[in-house]
Design a binder for these strands. Structure first.
Length: 594
RNA sequence: GGGGGUGUAGCUCAGUUGGUUAGAGCGAUCGCCUGUCACGCGAUAGGUCGAGGGUUCGAGUCCCUUCACUCCCGCCA
């Protein structure tokens, strides 16, 4: 016992009745009856109702005290009569009759209410984050985050992983996201970069012989924000293992994620053995490499249909001739949906920048016919062929898009979500994990037409290393994999390329000569030539895991002190200008754009 | 860099077809109230309608510009 409290605000029960107690906390709410005053005292653990009446000399002072003031209460625990028991709070069977009190921390007029179910603008929440964090929901989210991280540490330790820290000030690397740069005072004109991930370090840890490493690692990327992407910084469970194949990594991560999600959520896990979907199939069937597998809708390619004589939909036929694809989504048993259902989706697609979504519904007039604006363009045989290809039945509707491969994937991926939401096809009470595997090593930049790494340049290409066809780099697949859950990319990893000669070769295809590789990736390429073990790893995003577990749609709801969309910390006023002296020491001068 | 949404009291919002003095709830201040738990009742204060420009007899409302926040595209090995 200390001078502030004998119990926290969630401790008192009926067995404490008669005890003299000290409680300290925030005034959550007051209910003033004039001659009788209720004070809900709140701390991290809960709420205790305290009561004082007019006979007490402190009554009129407490009546006037501001909400969210921190006070210490001295009093005795009393029983509540049966009708006044509050089952909503753990301490609801008792209350504390106040004898005296002391103000520990005064509170000015509040810019936002703390005890309220109202939503507030992010601007005010972030500016007064210390108040916002007192509120129940987000307070619990942050506690959940702490518990999840602690649990993951325990699981990793149990599996024999060692936790290491890696440098925060490191070197800028040419691949990947934009770096945050830190000027060096001792090395004029040179810059550190904050790590986008401890990628090279964790590989060096493997080369150093530590076998299994993990870290709850801060990662810094200077890219624009999204709802599920903090600007600036985020955390990964970074892990790496030596002498492993892809399946070894999969086993570890599936076990870890299933254990974590089972412990912290009651939602069901669709498949504890995560299904594996190749990158190319993901793009074909879901239009995206982060498919939401709770959504039963599948995309089918029916480009061939539009080369038939008995199909007269000329707009699509012309586009197909010039290389466009036609793909479609079948919705089951939607023939009695009103016209507005279909038109809304078409209208929505146009708002998304597509040329719209054509549609028709299969009916059984004279065997089969198509109803809808474009139904008349299809012969009976063509419809039968479509039904065969898409497994569509009479009564189903078909939404079609025709465009270049990339565009048709993009719009149908969005349409898949949109239509499933409209039809309420997504079970919100489920986590659907999957692996996306077999990523291509390279892709072609659409603008410059240059070959570049499509994912991680340190990934190991698949297949017999002697047989790799370097002449057709776009056909090379990598041991590169992502985990997706409910349409959110949770992590990305790879079996690494630990063979320097192969590394030079692969980099040369992406336009880096040997000297450039030596220069830009010196730490690692050098290390690989001194006996590197085969190794691989992955890095699940901590923030996104907690976001899913907390059932939040926005990553800031599980981040204690996030920045806003413009990468500003409204509370700390970061970023900020610095003094001329500081700039001078760093040999920097500013040339601001007007 | 581009597109959508939002911006009215400290907070959350309403504000009709352009028309008198811009409203409500919460919060604040003052008063009444001894069993509430979103206590109740009464009163008072609180507004550059994000900013600037325009149209109009008249603009919170219509038009243009701009700023802020947010969602999305680009970007994110």
């Amino acid at each position: 016992m200390n001078k502030y409290r004998t119990h926290n605000c969630n401790a008192l029960r009926q067995k404490n009745v008669g005890d003299d107690v000290l409680l300290s906390g925030w005034i959550n709410k007051k209910r003033d009856h004039g001659n009788l005053l209720f004070i809900d005292l709140r701390d991290n653990y809960g709420i205790t109702q305290c009561i004082i009446d007019k006979k007490n000399p402190h009554f009129s002072e407490l009546e006037k005290i501001q909400l969210e003031t921190v006070i210490k209460i001295k009093g005795s625990v009393v029983d509540r009569s049966l009708e006044t028991i509050n089952n909503e709070i753990d301490t609801g069977e008792v209350e504390v009759s106040i004898n005296s009190y002391e103000i520990l921390g005064k509170c000015s007029e509040l810019p936002m209410p703390v005890f309220s179910d109202q939503e507030y603008s992010e601007e005010i929440r972030l500016k007064y984050r210390f108040l916002d964090l007192r509120r129940k929901k987000i307070h619990e989210n942050i506690i959940l985050r702490s518990k999840v991280i602690s649990f993951i540490r325990g699981e990793m330790n149990k599996m024999g992983f060692l936790e290491f820290q890696t440098p925060i000030l490191t070197s800028s690397s040419p691949e990947g996201a934009r770096d945050f740069l830190v000027p060096s005072r001792l090395n004029p004109g040179k810059f550190y970069a904050l790590p986008q991930a401890p990628q090279q370090f964790k590989q060096l840890i493997m080369v150093s012989g530590f076998d299994k490493y993990f870290q709850i690692a801060p990662c810094f990327r200077d890219e624009d924000a999204r709802a599920d992407r903090s600007p600036g910084e985020f955390y990964q469970l970074d892990l790496e293992m030596s002498f492993v194949e892809q399946n070894d990594i999969f086993d570890v991560v599936e076990r870890l994620l299933v254990n974590t999600f089972k412990k912290f959520s009651n939602k069901k896990i669709l498949s504890e053995k995560f299904p594996r979907i190749s990158y190319s199939n993901a793009l074909l069937n879901f239009g995206s490499d982060k498919p939401d597998l709770r959504n039963p809708l599948i995309i089918n390619d029916i480009t061939e249909i539009f080369t038939r004589e008995d199909v007269s939909f000329d707009i699509f036929k012309k586009l197909v001739k010039s290389g466009s694809k036609v793909r479609c989504i079948v919705t089951k048993n939607t023939k009695s949906k009103p016209r507005s259902f279909f038109d809304n989706i078409d209208k929505w697609a146009k708002e998304q920048g597509a040329s719209g979504l054509a549609y028709f519904t299969l009916e059984n007039e004279k065997e089969v016919s198509a109803k809808g604006p474009i139904g008349k363009f299809f012969s009976k045989d063509a419809l039968k062929e479509i039904m065969k290809k898409t497994k569509a039945k009479i009564g189903d509707s078909i939404f079609l898009a025709c465009d270049k491969k990339n565009n048709v994937e993009k719009i149908l991926s969005l349409a898949r979500d949109k239509i499933a939401n409209d039809l309420h096809l997504i079970d919100d009470n489920t986590f659907a994990f999957c692996w996306i595997v077999d990523y291509p090593m390279y892709e072609k930049d659409e603008l410059s037409n240059e070959i570049k790494f499509s994912h991680n340049p340190f990934s190991m290409p698949q297949g017999d290393l002697d047989q790799i066809d370097f002449e057709n780099p776009l056909d090379i697949l990598a041991y590169q994999y992502d985990i997706v859950c409910n349409g959110i990319e949770l992590s990305s990893g790879a079996i690494r390329n630990h063979i320097p000669e192969l590394m030079y070769k692969l980099f040369s295809i992406a336009g880096y000569n040997k000297d450039q590789v030596n220069e830009k990736f010196s730490g690692m390429i050098n290390a690989l030539s001194y006996g590197a073990p085969p190794h691989g790893g992955i890095a699940p995003g901590i923030d996104r895991i907690v976001m899913l577990l907390a059932n939040e749609k926005n990553i800031r709801e599980v981040t204690m002190f996030p920045m806003n969309q413009n990468a500003q910390d409204l509370m700390m006023k970061a970023p900020s200008e610095v003094s001329d002296m500081q700039l001078k020491e760093l040999n920097l001068s500013l040339k601001l754009k007007k």
